[in-house]
Write a protein that binds this DNA or RNA. Structure first.
Lengths: 300, 300
DNA sequence: TAAAAATACTCCATAGGTATTTTAT
DNA sequence: ATAAAATACCTATGGAGTATTTTTA
């Protein structure tokens, strides 16, 4: 019967590396050790556990089903270990180091340029690396440990994460100049029932929100997929239809005044922008503080 | 900047042992190593992490606040590691070894004698160790890893656990012989409004359920606390009042027919008996199977 | 002075390296 | 023949031991 101190964290790293690369040489390179060293450790782990993790068949390595299970658990051990080390770093010197934050594309270009200078001025030794990703990828990468936090809309499915709300972001209607609906000061969602509502590309949570709001309208896919709000507003201004925009995006997207922007009557449709992170993330305290900064900037 | 392979699982075990025992000697004994060995490893870990985990003050050791955080994370790493090892054991020889299962006191004496022989006949190499505990303790010990599963009523707060339902267990009224309510074949909960409803001791989830059901009745604490359903039924049969019983307990508790048992009209109050375990427990597959056994026996 | 942790030192188990062999295409 | 993993063997780091010193109540 094997016991916990018959295995080492390094062995787990090696096994995970082999599972990732499906090759002992590549895995060894990734771990900065020689191939025999890594082979020996993997073999020893297999022998201690009494479970064959890899099929070393002709020319290629593949995971056994047992290996799938064990490797998944090894990842969890390593993730907790990384968290411990990161927590120690934070305790030693809080507000330093690098944090990787995923931001959805319908927030990133509008919120970050505004608040980033403020944050980096306040915490000069804290380096924030932002990556533009969609909600589903952010949630996945958070769980995998390849992201530290996410900046997104809470209305989507975020799994089990800690979060701090930053702002409520109302949706407004964006119409081409001279559109009949522009005569009204405020629109209701039902006003859109007769209009052509243009949608963002699939995978964006904002698209899903708009779809849910405009169940009765003639929503229409576009021939050229709108991969960003920039494309979307261009289509609108060229008269192809109308759309919704997050209020956050309006100052940027309508900076040349080419669109007619109309708010909605209450209850205003919108989204809740929040910072999320893994529960028990070593940087939880930083994120709470970071959210406070974002809130003070984005709230107004 | 420390990295993951600057620390070992053994160092984490040592640190946790010191945190548990608040003494290097006792910790060393628990880890089966000498005190200097353990001291050296703890020191090295502190130096690698750059964080002081313990205050070695006059005569006694105590955890720093930083230490609280790090030790909690160390426990998580070790728990995941234990799970990995246990998973390997299960993969090597499924349905062997020992599983520790917490059972609430209002289920244990009534369900276990019935089903245990069947289960151990079916899986002779699987040894089940049952521990009678209340719901809150079961949930806590599951998270700590000192229990593998729990057998309890789903109506209580079980945190985030995997579970498999076993049976619905209706509640019935238990009355003393000759009680006026015994004239009716079926009771409704409001019939109890005029009766003295006796309660189980605090901490039992069954007590909480009964309290929630009988908000309007004159529930009454007893001078002598009823720490079990045995005491409770004795009080009822001696005429001190009426009570509810889980149907599961009736064959045992009323085996001498000293009580009048009356069912309730629909919707019948009751509880859902289930087996719960940590998500990603290495023995999840066994528990699913075990629940199947219990279901087939308890369902009838 | 007594009890507990730290220090000093020695030892050996083993992770890691290089060189080589085996294996399968 | 070649590419990849396994084997053989050597080295050196460091985890563990015993003996001792330091510290403080």
């Amino acid at each position: 019967m094997p016991s916990l101190h018959d295995l080492s964290l390094r062995q787990l790293q090696y096994v995970v590396a082999v599972a990732d690369t499906l090759g002992f040489h590549k895995a060894a390179a990734r771990c900065h050790v020689s191939q025999p060293t890594l082979s020996a450790q993997v073999q020893q782990l297999e022998s201690v556990l009494g479970v064959r993790l890899f099929e070393r068949d002709r020319r290629r390595v593949l995971l056994t089903t047992d290996g799938e299970d064990i490797v998944a658990r090894a990842r969890r051990v390593l993730l907790e270990g990384d968290d411990l080390v990161a927590a120690a770093d934070r305790l030693r010197e809080p507000f330093t180091g690098t944090l990787r934050i995923g931001v959805i594309p319908t927030i990133a270009p509008y919120l970050l340029p505004e608040v980033m200078p403020k944050v980096s001025a306040k915490y000069p030794k804290l380096s924030l690396v932002f990556r533009e990703e969609r909600t589903a990828d952010i949630v996945r990468d958070l769980a995998l440990g390849s992201l530290d936090a996410g900046l997104l809309a809470l209305e989507a499915d975020i799994g089990e994460c800690a979060h701090a709300e930053i702002a409520r972001d109302s949706f407004v209607a964006a119409l081409p100049k001279g559109h009949p609906l522009a005569r009204k000061r405020r629109l209701s969602l039902s006003d859109l029932n007769d209009a052509h509502v243009l949608l963002l590309d699939e995978g964006h949570c904002f698209r899903d929100q708009v779809l849910a709001l405009c169940t009765r309208a003639k929503v229409s896919e576009m021939t050229f997929r709108a991969t960003s709000l920039v494309t979307l507003t261009q289509m609108v201004s060229s008269g192809a239809g109308v759309t919704l925009l997050p209020a956050l995006a309006v100052p940027v997207e309508n900076r040349r005044g080419q669109l007619e922007i109309r708010p909605f009557v209450k209850p205003t449709p919108g989204r809740t922008i929040a910072l999320i992170w893994r529960p028990r993330s070593p940087s939880g305290a930083i994120f709470v503080e970071l959210a406070r900064c974002l809130r003070s900037r984005a709230g107004g």
